[in-house]
């Protein structure tokens, strides 16, 4: 790791102030992804602002009947929350499908949203990668792409966003609360958090410099049956080949989001509308613009079959 200076912030305001004073600073919460990348010289911050003691670690009911999840709520605590388990079960299911117990004890809600791709070429500083080193090229295109994106990518980058939690939050239409250095705030739907790679895959989110995610807000629960099926090569502690998150109601209506297929949690409201028609129709809509590689084309039938399996479970 490159040497860095380190400060503990005691409030969000202090963290933001420090960030404004220290160019090259990064916030560190759980650290489970940032430190991983710093050890490999992929992330090289000159300063770390430890935000683990700024609060934002509670889950509160909102007046509207939803939940406000503090940015520093640990994945384990999020998954364990009584109302999340009962009313937003897809979120608990997604969170506990990710990583390991040890990592979930440490990883924060906001950090999970902002974790970076697991593309093996992004992780290898000897290889060209447009995300890590803009303009250097993409080794994955024409290289090993079995686990990478089939949709929403670009000809500069086919990395996937690896978060399971984000897929459930996208399905739940979560809202991201963001605080700025001047004390003002803004909120965005999670759909607007992730940026398509286009020609600048190094820019992954719409967060501006110095902005801090403070909370994730869930709208009131929608009811329905909740499913999160993560398909992977081993039974646990692995990233998704594909994952399928579904909420489906007794009348057959519902919504669906995918993980492991795109640079962001993949959801199309038009596909939700096709859900009552079955897995084939919904998948056809969801993945209509897919441009898989030879190695990852299997993800299309895999999504359809996984969704089909979920829908048949939902009916039974």
């Amino acid at each position: 790791m490159r040497p860095f200076s380190y400060q503990r912030a005691t409030s969000a305001a202090e963290a933001l102030r420090l960030a404004s004073e220290l160019p090259g600073a990064r916030f560190i919460a759980g650290g489970t992804n940032l430190l991983d990348l710093m050890k490999l010289s992929i992330e090289r911050p000159s300063h770390l602002i430890d935000i683990n003691r700024i609060g934002l670690d509670r889950i509160e009911d909102t007046p509207e009947g939803g939940l406000r999840i503090g940015a520093l709520v640990r994945n384990t605590d999020l998954a364990s929350h009584k109302r999340v388990r009962k009313e937003y079960a897809v979120l608990t299911k997604a969170v506990v499908a990710g990583a390991s117990g040890q990592i979930r004890n440490k990883a924060s809600t906001a950090g999970n949203l902002l974790q970076r791709t697991r593309c093996p070429y992004f992780y290898n500083t000897d290889q060209p990668c447009n995300k890590r080193n803009p303009g250097s090229g993409c080794s994955a295109i024409g290289g090993f792409s079995r686990s990478l994106a089939i949709i929403g990518a670009s000809d500069t980058c086919i990395a996937t966003q690896p978060s399971d939690m984000a897929v459930a939050l996208r399905l739940l239409d979560a809202i991201i609360e963001i605080e700025r250095q001047d004390g003002s705030g803004r909120t965005i739907p999670i759909a607007d958090l992730y940026k398509a790679p286009g020609t600048s895959p190094d820019v992954e989110t719409t967060l501006a410099a110095g902005e801090l995610i403070t909370a994730v807000v869930l709208p009131p629960p929608s009811g329905g049956k909740h499913f999160y099926h993560k398909v992977r090569d081993r039974a646990s502690y692995a990233f998704a080949l594909v994952s399928v998150a579904v909420i489906v109601h007794d009348n057959g209506s519902g919504k669906v989001a995918l993980g492991g297929v795109a640079p962001k949690p993949w959801r199309l409201e038009t596909a939700d509308a096709a859900l009552p028609l079955g897995a084939e129709a919904a998948t056809a809509t969801l993945l209509a613009s897919a441009t898989p590689t030879h190695e990852n084309a299997y993800k299309i039938p895999l999504v359809e079959r996984t969704l089909g399996s979920i829908l048949s479970q939902a009916r039974s």
Binding site: R118, P120, Y121, Y123, N124, Q127, S139, G142, G143, F144, D233, R234, A235, S236, Y237, A238, F239
Partner: peptide
């Protein structure tokens, strides 16, 4: 990686070995 001649999945996250659940 047949282009550049190395084992791409060279860590324990990407070279998967069995875990307890398997």
């Amino acid at each position: 990686d047949k282009n550049r001649g190395f084992f791409v999945n060279h860590d324990l996250a990407s070279y998967e070995v069995p875990v307890h659940a398997d």
